[in-house]
Amino acid sequence: MMGTSPLARIGLVVALVIALLWTVLPLYWVLKFAFETSGEIALFPPPLFPPHPQPGAFYSIFGFPYKLASGNTLLPSGQSHQILLGLRNSLIVAVIVTAITLIVVVPLAYVFARLEFRHRNKLLTAVLLAVSSPPVSTLIPFYALYVQLDLVNTLTGLIIVTLTITIPFVTWMLIGFFRNLPPVERLARIDGFSRVYTFARIMVPLGRGGIAVAAGIAFLFSWNEYVYAQVLVTGSEAVTLPAAVSGFLFQDPEPSQLAASMWLSVLPPFLLCFFLQKHIGEMNLVDPVR
């Protein structure tokens, strides 16, 4: 630790503990619920640890029965079909959204970050305007449009809508990152490489850390997206995991199964952030309009 006064150190520890409690406690509490029965969840005061931890809820949400130690059997959840569909659909949507976002955004951000052209700042402002508008503001127009185009309850519709969020946001992130790369384009021109070769074979490998983070962010956005999914695909064959999980709130409330499915949806983003952590620090989030 830095050479600071004991008081400052205590302050730092207290701040860290508060921050950790703030983020970790809700996650723990949900995890605790997942290993309890409804009766145990209803206990007051609540126990800090599950009195008889068992993974029954995880069996239920995947559609399997589970035999408790007491001899009772936990039945498969009525929502299991939706959960499994949601898991599959969320994965499909997130992967496709991530791929398309990268294909569009990497060249776009590069051009905005490193090239000079007419109306550059005006065009950039137009791209970034979308970052500042809340997603809900476009929800109703999209819904009306989708009814006409027959895109309600389809994965295609959800992918298109999610891209309208990920593309501007990830562009904004990557511009700052690309701008901070050293000016190796001049080196590449002396070495005789075309602009396209320079971009594809030099700048992309050079910026792979930032691009990985951009991919992660696009995946997270898509994976966590709830508002559009709730309106556009809930209850259909195109349901995504967040929308399917919310189903527990409305029919046959089973808190331990809700908790288990929430953990199921938290896990991929959690792992993703863990592995991308090193590169996230390298990102340079600055005002891209300059």
């Binding site: 050293p182 000016p183 190796v184 001049r186 080196l187 021109r189 002396i190 070495d191 005789g192 030099i202 490998p205 050079l206």
Partner: peptide, 20 residues
Amino acid sequence: QPPHHRNIAMVFQSSLLYPH
């Protein structure tokens, strides 16, 4: 003519290299 056709070599400020 583009740089490559001039058969020149250039060393940039701070001896720029491809970092990767």
